[in-house]
Design a protein around this nucleic acid. Structure first.
Lengths: 108, 108
DNA sequence: TTGTTAATTAATAAAAAGGTTAACTACTGG
DNA sequence: CCAGTAGTTAACCTTTTTATTAATTAACAA
């Protein structure tokens, strides 16, 4: 079942480990795969697979340098999901105002 | 493995079906479980379980009326995730500006 | 009480996610 | 060429997710 690309990106981020990887890349800039092991420590292959998911979701990019693979956040990808959540938030907020107003009335 | 509550809510929404349920409840207001079958049509038990997930994530609430279960969006829950994505977006945007500036320099 | 409707829970089953170790690829330095 | 390091892919296993049908609960109408 084909997920829309944006939902795929969204889903890629609703995992603690992957979210932490993206945050690291955003705040620390380009990093080799080996530097991305999160505190608790999962194996290198596991990280590698998370990176693949993130790459396929368009959220990070990869560049080779010698034997290393340097990863970095992909502005376009992140911007896309930022904008999407933004627009959905706008939609929600509008409706939430209505909802909350309705609740007030019920209380009165 | 305990996910933070906010990530649990976030994850609850990164599913096409559940996102659509929430959207319906937000835009159309209170609806009985039976009215929430999305177009393609999945079974009632399946919907019922999605509703349970959303309820446990604090995103919707339930009210009984006769034999029906009326569901509605929960403003506090939605507000919470809106604010969280908002703050993370802010963090990202700041860094994205830096990232993009860096890319410009490389091009030059 | 009996039958009907709305919805949930129980019991499986199938698929997806995520982790591990082991094997492999690809640079690099002696 | 050989050994070592960085990283990915393969093979496998376990856990989680999600769907299905069947059974159950609850409200109600005749």
């Amino acid at each position: 079942m084909g997920m829309t690309p944006i939902l795929k990106s969204f889903a890629a981020l609703s995992d603690e480990t992957r979210l932490s990887i993206v945050d690291q890349l955003i705040s620390q800039g380009e990093l080799p795969a080996g530097d991305l092991a999160p505190g608790a420590g999962i194996s290198a292959p596991a990280i590698s697979r998370h990176l693949k998911v993130l790459r396929e979701a368009g959220l990070i990019s990869q560049r080779a340098e010698g034997t290393r693979r340097l990863y970095s956040a992909r502005p376009e990808g992140l911007r896309m999901i930022a904008e999407w959540t933004q627009s959905r938030r706008a939609f929600w907020e509008r409706s939430l105002d209505r909802l909350e107003a309705a609740l007030m009335e019920d209380d009165a």
